[in-house]
Simulated scan of single mutants.
Amino acid sequence: MDISVVIPLYNEVDSLPELTAWIRQVMDDHRFSYEIILVDDGSTDGSWMAIEGLKAMNPKITAVKFRRNYGKSAALNVGFAAAQGDVVITMDADLQDSPDEIPELYRRIVQEDFDLVSGWKRQRHDPPSKTIPTKLFNSVTRGMSGIHNLHDFNCGLKAYKKEVVKSIEVYGEMHRYIPVIAKWAGFKRIDEQVVQHYPRKYGKTKFGPGRFMKGFLDLLSIFFVGKFGKRPMHFFGTMGVLSFLAGFIIAIWLIVEKLVSIANQSPYRNVTEQPLFFFALIAIVIGTQLFLTGFIAELVSRSSAERNNYQIEKVI
């Protein structure tokens, strides 16, 4: 099979007939073998009934229905597990992503051998309350991830090699960081493509301002797990040793200062009367706790069933 189109959706009953018909037209025009995987993330507006009707008219449609709303990341993860195509395309169900972009995305994966091609909505039809935080968010993500050639990490329209979606796990709010997750998994041929962004035709956006804070926390999680997931002692141990040494050096300096003052018969304050002493004490305690945290995390990591789970590209 050439292409799997994975579409997570939540309360998009009005857009589904038009979207699936549009995808079908594009696929037939280019003679692609394909499947459409619709993942209903607990919709309450009749989306599932619409999907059942569409499935009866188009056998290329496969559908999954969650009992409740779990979020876009969960829907994508289930869709990735079900996908059988050599190239996997993800897109939103609100008709703001154009299926006409699919042939070029497919070509770039197959002919240019990219692992992942992410859409870039250079001209957006969203209010400033959404576009301004998004630009800031993308800038921070580029800096932390080192993927400097992507302008729009959160674009729902992306294309992947099948190996990519079968090698990663998406949860929480991490759908916006799939390029980062893919990079940490060893898939480094990542590029972007300018895509058309249409105004929302039906309904309203399902994302509120709280997603930015959740997304930032997930970015920190990805950064830590990707860099230190199999060696947590390197992170916690380093921070702990540095904190402990800083506190220890300050304490020694205060003691030496007192001893010198006594030897010179100069006025002095007791070590415990100086504010620096308490900073030193706190640094020593925090350093010890961080070191022990790293030690425990290392034990947990070594006991995990995933401790030797590595991404292998080829075996000859």
Results as ranks from 00 to 15, higher is better:
V26I: 12
V26Q: 06
M27N: 01
M27S: 02
D28R: 07
D28K: 14
D28H: 04
D29T: 09
S33R: 12
Y34T: 04
Y34C: 02
E35V: 09
E35G: 03
L38E: 10
V39G: 09
V39C: 08
V39E: 10
D40L: 03
S43E: 07
T44L: 03
G46D: 08
S47T: 12
M49K: 08
M49L: 09
M49C: 00
A50V: 15
G53Y: 11
K55T: 13
M57Y: 04
P59G: 02
P59T: 13
I61W: 03
I61C: 06
I61S: 01
T62H: 14
T62Y: 02
A63F: 10
A63T: 10
V64P: 00
K65P: 03
K65G: 04
F66G: 07
R67K: 14
N69I: 10
N69Q: 14
N69P: 00
N69M: 14
Y70Q: 07
G71R: 01
S73Q: 00
A74M: 01
L76W: 13
N77T: 09
F80A: 13
A81L: 10
A82F: 08
A83Y: 02
A83E: 03
Q84D: 07
Q84M: 11
V87W: 07
V88D: 05
V88K: 02
V88C: 12
T90F: 05
M91T: 05
D92G: 15
D94P: 10
D94S: 11
D94K: 13
Q96H: 03
Q96D: 02
S98M: 09
S98N: 15
P99I: 07
P99V: 10
D100I: 11
D100L: 07
D100M: 14
E101V: 13
E101I: 04
R107P: 06
R108F: 10
I109E: 10
I109A: 03
I109P: 12
Q111M: 13
Q111C: 04
E112W: 05
E112C: 00
D113P: 03
D115E: 12
D115C: 03
L116W: 00
S118G: 04
W120D: 14
K121N: 15
K121Y: 01
